[in-house]
Design a protein around this nucleic acid. Structure first.
Length: 418
DNA sequence: TCTGGGGTCCTAGGACCC
DNA sequence: TCTGGGGTCCTAGGACCC
């Protein structure tokens, strides 16, 4: 049996852990640049604030209803996530961290009769040790565990779907659009063919499913029928693409600012690259104006630069990014977004083809990167940076309602009784 | 005024090889 | 002059996830 454990309203709950005054009140967390709502507490959901609500159109309503507004605080959420996952690992030797707020656990070591109690104990332990409310869905396949997890809210936080018992009953009332792996497009298509519940989907013909939803969709259907097709992925595979892309607070016209931003994103992507012990052979930069704004002259373009040898050396990568930018920058446009992609990633231990005309990164440069990563890890991102990243960085994103990084910065630790 | 960011996988079709 | 069969690799586009 598999369990899916997911945190309730994760970002909003993280904010609450260190600000108890937010308990019982509507809380929303905003996207980068404080653009739109990306997480809501239950109270906020009860106010019918939709996911993706634009802050500026809702600002007045938020004020009227005493809604607490938070900018997203990823250092805090990332650390809280790690804490939850650490607790969960005490409950199973096999855990797949699926996303920042969800994990799949193998519960094959737990007797079927004990599953419900076991799930409750997981919930209580996470709540006690981390302060995070979680729910659990337990079933024979990952897809069914996902179904169970959606139902867990009506069952004191834990729902067990036993293989033989009443699975049909449950699936008959479960909308096909909420099935894991069925997105908006497929849901509309299926409804057009009179498939509106998970049970209808189970009864569809395999060949028809594969024809229209590909092999991936067929796997989903098999899993709904109780046949496991997706195994637990305990070690996260190395990423094939690393992307860092941001919209700017205010549009940027200036080449220097654009180049600083891209250098900063490249440095961040290079940190991620080194963290997964890879080198990069292709770097792509892109810039674009605001596509949402009518009446503005629009422009967007991207440029790709390749390396003869894979590299993870920030200065070399930044140089390539800037070189790419030079070929696509057009003066006179108001740029709203810029980003960098690293592709063609090669694992370090795989080694690389030697090249007659290029030398690999020399040892002192590698040591320098290691040193930078450590200092920035301990003292905060950007403590050490390249001059190319710029000083004041006026293009940085808007975060007007940012909470403290309670768990990762000594000078932002919660103070009690002062 | 203003609309997030970061990923994965599959398929079809074209170019090319022997 | 026309014909066959079996492949690989790459890219673009479309679907999905959180």
């Amino acid at each position: 049996m598999y369990a899916l454990v997911d945190c309730n309203n994760f970002y909003a709950s993280c904010e609450r852990v260190f600000q108890p005054r937010l308990m019982g009140r509507p809380v929303v967390v905003l996207s980068n640049n404080d653009g739109c709502v990306i997480a809501r507490s239950q109270e906020a959901k009860d106010l019918d604030i939709p996911m993706g609500a634009h802050y500026h159109t809702w600002e007045a309503a938020f004020r009227r209803n005493n809604v607490i507004v938070c900018s997203s605080n990823y250092p805090l959420y990332g650390d809280m996530s790690a804490r939850v996952m650490t607790v969960l690992k005490e409950f199973s030797p096999h855990v797949e961290v699926y996303s920042i707020d969800e994990s799949f656990l193998s519960l094959h070591h737990v007797p079927v009769a004990d599953l419900l109690r076991y799930g409750q104990r997981m919930r209580q332990t996470v709540a006690k040790h981390v302060g995070m409310p979680v729910g659990a869905g337990i079933a024979a396949t990952k897809t069914l565990a996902k179904v169970a997890s959606k139902l867990s809210k009506q069952h004191n936080g834990v729902c067990v779907l036993h293989p033989q018992a009443k699975a049909e009953e449950v699936l008959a009332t479960f909308p096909v659009s909420k099935v894991w792996g069925i997105g908006g497009r497929y849901a509309r298509f299926l409804q057009g063919h009179e498939i509106s519940t998970a049970l209808d989907l189970c009864h569809a013909k395999d060949s028809w499913i594969q024809q229209h939803l590909s092999i991936v969709g067929l796997r989903t259907v098999m899993e709904l029928r109780g046949t496991p097709c997706l195994s637990l992925e305990e070690v996260a595979p190395r990423k094939q693409v690393i992307a860092v892309s941001r919209t700017f607070r205010n549009a940027v016209k200036d080449y220097t600012a654009l180049s600083e931003a891209l250098a900063t994103y490249t440095a961040r992507a290079a940190e991620k690259l080194r963290a997964q012990q890879c080198g990069c052979t292709i770097i792509k930069v892109h810039v674009a104006t605001n596509i949402y704004q009518d009446g503005l002259s629009q422009y967007g373009n991207s440029a790709t630069v390749s390396f003869a040898l894979p590299t993870d050396y920030t200065p070399r990568l930044v140089k390539a990014a800037v070189q790419g930018l030079k070929t696509i920058y057009r003066p006179g446009y108001a740029y709203k977004i810029a980003g960098v992609y690293f592709m063609g990633l090669v694992a370090e231990e795989e080694g690389s083809q030697l090249d007659l005309f290029n030398t690999p990164t020399p040892a002192p440069s590698r040591a320098l990167m290691k040193c930078m990563d450590r200092i920035n890890g301990e003292h905060g991102r950007g403590t050490l940076k390249l001059a190319a990243e710029g000083g004041t960085q006026p293009w940085r994103m808007r975060q007007k309602h940012l909470s403290q990084r309670y768990t990762t910065r000594w000078n932002e630790v919660l103070k009690v009784g002062v």
